Simulated assay, not measured.
Amino acid sequence: MKNLFQIVFLCFICVLLSSCALKTKIQSQSTYIILKTPQIKFADYGFLYEGKNLTKLEFYNSSKVLFELKITDKICINGVCYTKILFNKRFFNYEYYDDFLQDLILKKPIFYGKNKQITSCGFTQKIMSKNYDIFYEVCNGYMSFNEKKSKVKFSMKSL
């Protein structure tokens, strides 16, 4: 009986300790961010956090968190959440597609790689329609997004 109790106790301790080890790993990276939209104008340092189901940008000014942009199934700014399409329409002046902002932040090709040109340090994309005129470039840890019609600029440089 004493051995059975010890085995059950050891199993309980193993389960307890292993559950703590299964936390989602989040990577952080310091970055310089420039964001200019009709609603937001920002140029300073911040942190990019990437996890399995989370992308988060913290914007700093004078070593204080100015605001936090968090992407999960929605996009939240300082706790105020929007659907991804509504966020795009409100902050980029066009709906685009759900993961548009996340693709920019993670420096992935946008619009499923449409008009993607490989360069020596990354890639560029020029995409035009009646609603937008986009130039997007990723090069050695630097990302630059410019949309001429709505005058939106967004760039990030990894430090």
Rank of each mutant, 00 (worst) to 15 (best):
residue 116 K to P: 13
residue 141 G to Y: 08
residue 130 K to E: 13
residue 120 S to P: 04
residue 135 F to Y: 08
residue 129 S to Q: 08
residue 109 P to K: 09
residue 110 I to N: 14
residue 144 S to M: 13
residue 103 D to S: 02
residue 118 I to D: 07
residue 127 I to V: 04
residue 142 Y to I: 10
residue 115 N to L: 15
residue 137 E to C: 00
residue 131 N to I: 12
residue 137 E to A: 14
residue 136 Y to D: 02
residue 121 C to P: 07
residue 114 K to Y: 13
residue 112 Y to W: 10
residue 133 D to W: 08
residue 102 Q to M: 05
residue 131 N to K: 00
residue 137 E to R: 00
residue 128 M to Q: 14
residue 113 G to W: 07
residue 145 F to S: 09
residue 126 K to P: 02
residue 115 N to M: 15
residue 135 F to I: 11
residue 127 I to K: 10
residue 110 I to L: 02
residue 139 C to A: 06
residue 136 Y to L: 00
residue 131 N to G: 06
residue 111 F to V: 08
residue 107 K to C: 06
residue 108 K to L: 09
residue 134 I to Y: 11
residue 107 K to I: 04
residue 103 D to Y: 03
residue 128 M to Y: 15
residue 128 M to V: 15
residue 139 C to T: 06
residue 132 Y to K: 08
residue 145 F to T: 14
residue 105 I to A: 06
residue 104 L to C: 07
residue 108 K to V: 03
residue 128 M to L: 14
residue 114 K to W: 10
residue 136 Y to Q: 01
residue 123 F to G: 03
residue 128 M to C: 14
residue 102 Q to W: 07
residue 127 I to C: 00
residue 119 T to R: 00
residue 129 S to V: 08
residue 127 I to S: 04
residue 116 K to C: 11
residue 130 K to H: 13
residue 126 K to E: 05
residue 110 I to F: 01
residue 111 F to Q: 13
residue 112 Y to P: 14
residue 138 V to F: 06
residue 112 Y to M: 08
residue 124 T to V: 02
residue 127 I to R: 04
residue 141 G to D: 13
residue 105 I to W: 15
residue 110 I to H: 09
residue 133 D to C: 03
residue 117 Q to P: 03
residue 112 Y to N: 11
residue 143 M to Y: 10
residue 140 N to D: 00
residue 122 G to M: 05
residue 119 T to L: 12
residue 129 S to D: 06
residue 106 L to F: 07
residue 143 M to Q: 13
residue 112 Y to V: 01
residue 121 C to N: 06
residue 142 Y to Q: 11
residue 114 K to N: 11
residue 113 G to F: 05
residue 111 F to P: 09
residue 106 L to C: 11
residue 145 F to G: 07
residue 123 F to P: 01
residue 142 Y to N: 07
residue 125 Q to N: 02
residue 107 K to Y: 00
residue 137 E to H: 05
residue 112 Y to G: 12
residue 142 Y to H: 05
residue 106 L to Y: 06
residue 136 Y to I: 01
residue 115 N to K: 02
residue 114 K to M: 13
residue 118 I to Q: 07
residue 135 F to R: 12
residue 140 N to L: 10
residue 129 S to P: 11
residue 122 G to D: 04
residue 134 I to E: 04
residue 115 N to E: 12
residue 124 T to W: 03
residue 124 T to D: 00
residue 116 K to F: 07
residue 117 Q to E: 01
residue 134 I to A: 05
residue 109 P to C: 00
residue 114 K to I: 15
residue 132 Y to F: 15
residue 126 K to S: 09
residue 130 K to W: 14
residue 144 S to T: 10
residue 113 G to L: 03
